[in-house]
């Protein structure tokens, strides 16, 4: 039971919910950039929510199935086709052995999640099948899919086709994109004006943005309060004595371009961080294309926790609608 990769697209990796528990050792948490979309795709095909699926960014793969399967594609708007026949997004459909799954051009968002009944059954490493290419962990030999790969599938229950996530429960970023930020420990290092500019300016997603970090440019540079750099910190005012980087934290090397650290980011280093994008908005970042206009919005802990609760309740509604 497997599928064959006829064309991997730009960058297609096996991802599940990630590899928590090793961050203190410098092993990134990895996993789907848009975990809501991954969970929804798995639920649609009758898998456990955390089963491994494929994440493709900007361009879909071409896959030839060696077995009958139920498939669902969620996340970005990138129409799927089975032997040329169009299939709707966020909806389960059948693919027969010998048929080929392809994709049209990306129309909105950035990353699709392709869940297949039975789940992708590559060998787990450190408790996860998520691919972390730089560390050669998970996925197919620790790398993105390549032409000719035969990717194993688990035992599927072969759920019926046509089940769909209601449109009001699907999520893609709005326009302009707003990312909510909780200011952090190092906020005191920047001037008041720099803080106002950060939240006031319009930023755009830099083309370099990837699974490690989403870089933004276009806003005014960050100005720092005068201080003598402490022992152990680098000489640039954006340097600190090494600290921890939580998922979502925003570093600004040299004070110029904010980088939101995402699933494949390292867990610590010597740049100050402005704070962190709240957990509820991290999935949305995974759906941002280059050059997307973005604003950062300051929130407090209460708002962040309420937003997290709202995301949980959205997922609860998806579960209920597909149970």
């Amino acid at each position: 039971m497997a599928f064959k990769v006829l064309n991997p697209g730009l960058f297609t990796t096996v991802q599940d919910l990630g590899r928590p528990g090793y961050f203190h050792l410098g092993i990134p948490i990895s996993g789907a950039m848009d975990r809501f979309a991954l969970r929804a795709a798995n639920l649609l095909v009758g898998n456990d929510e955390g089963a491994a699926a494929l994440e493709s960014v900007f361009m879909g793969p071409q896959l030839e199935f060696e077995v009958d399967a139920t498939v669902a594609v969620t996340g970005a708007d990138m129409p799927a086709r089975v032997d040329g026949e169009a299939k709707p997004g966020w909806t389960a459909f059948k693919v027969r052995a010998g048929q080929v799954l392809t994709f049209d051009y990306l129309k909105g968002g950035a990353r699709i999640y392709i869940a297949i009944s039975g789940g992708v059954d590559t060998p787990p490493s450190l408790d996860s099948r998520s691919t972390y290419p730089i560390g050669a962990l998970g996925g197919v030999e620790g790398r993105p899919l390549a032409i000719g790969d035969i990717v194993p599938l688990g035992n599927g229950v072969g759920i019926k086709e046509g089940r769909s996530v209601p449109e009001n429960l699907r999520r893609l970023p709005g326009s302009p994109v707003e990312l909510r930020v909780l200011p952090g420990l190092y906020w005191r290092l920047i001037t008041e004006e720099a803080g106002r500019n950060f939240f006031g300016d319009e930023w755009t997603v830099a083309p370099e943005a990837d699974r490690m970090g989403y870089r933004f440019r276009g806003g005014r540079p960050i100005q720092f309060e005068e201080r003598k750099q402490p022992f152990g910190a680098g000489s640039d005012p954006s340097n600190i004595v090494d600290g921890c980087y939580p998922y979502g934290s925003i570093q600004v090397p040299g004070g110029t371009e904010p980088i939101v650290l995402h699933r494949d980011a390292v867990s610590g280093g010597g740049y100050f961080t402005l704070g962190a994008v709240i957990s509820a908005d991290m999935d949305l970042i995974g759906q941002l294309q280059p050059h997307t206009p973005t604003r950062f919005v300051k929130v407090d802990m209460k708002t962040a926790l309420t937003a997290r609760h709202d995301r949980q309740s959205l997922l609860g509604k998806v579960r209920a609608s597909l149970s």
Binding site: F58, M59, L106, A110, P290
Partner: peptide, 9 residues
């Protein structure tokens, strides 16, 4: 001729 990807041309 269409761009296959989003990005900078």
């Amino acid at each position: 001729i269409l761009s296959p990807l989003p990005g900078t041309f």
